[in-house]
Amino acid sequence: MNCNRCAEPAVMHAAYSGAHLCEAHFLESVEKRVRRRVRRDDLVPRSATPDNPQKWLIGLSGGKDSVVLTQILYETFHEDPRIELICLTIHEGIEGYRDKSLDACIELTDDLDLTHEMLSYEDEFDVRMDQVVEDDPENMAACAYCGVFRRDLLSNYAEDIDADLLLTGHNLDDEAQTALMNFLEGDVSQIAKHFDASLGPLSERRSSEAFVPRAKPLRDVPEKEVALYAHLRDLPAHITECPHSSEAYRGEIQQLLYGLEENHPGTRHSILSGYEELAGIVAERYDADGDDPDLRECTECGSTTTREICRKCSLLESIQAV
């Protein structure tokens, strides 16, 4: 089978579009989708100039998604004086796992000559995920602790360096799963928050001075295609699963989506596209109702939160009490 666009052999079939693409046309198609998403989400504002460049912080874990995101953003913007790219890796304290992916991050950022910083749970919070999983004071999945700590470090670091945008490598599968989970949980306010936090075009979001806005430019690309892109370009992505990975509900939704996609190609795209439209309407409605959460400073760490003590600090308290 040859590529639909040239005479080279196809390396992939996208059932949702019917396309068979060769390596060169497949790589080009992924890059085009990422750049189109950057444009559609208005990520480069008119106010960005060489004298007033935008500072973009990329959450770089060393896995395929963030490595592909970093590579494409670099190739898109490295000659653009309006955008400055900085990468941040979070070390969770997972023996033999994050050390290897950190090597991938260092190799990539050295190759691209990008500024790269690393923060660890151990240095910042005096905890390691290996120990947290063993103690498990809240009887939760590892990812529930880890996600809170990671988001805290990413957003605080973004604030500290005065970043204009925090970018992460969430792909189409990740976002379609989250959309479906929010919908199945009936969590309409979470859907509105999702729009304002990372989904909506920057110009349409309810802005919050308290948080650096987030963006997910890979979210039009299925996870499989992100992996294929990393493989074909031989990018230094780390390919080992986190030993503590255990999101049971997300795994169930993932399997459900594989089945739906098999029988009805394009399901993930249509879920996310409908969800984004719905999220925009709901966010506008909440905005009109003035239904904003009261934000205040955490009495422990000063982070912006809706509670007296933020989630990170309350988890740290539980962990330290063991």
Binding site: P9, V11, H13, K224, L228, L257, Y258, E261
Partner: peptide
């Protein structure tokens, strides 16, 4: 949707 198939090291549709 969760794997890639390689033949002689090359992905195949």
């Amino acid at each position: 949707h969760e794997v890639s198939v390689l033949v002689d090291g090359r992905p195949v549709p």
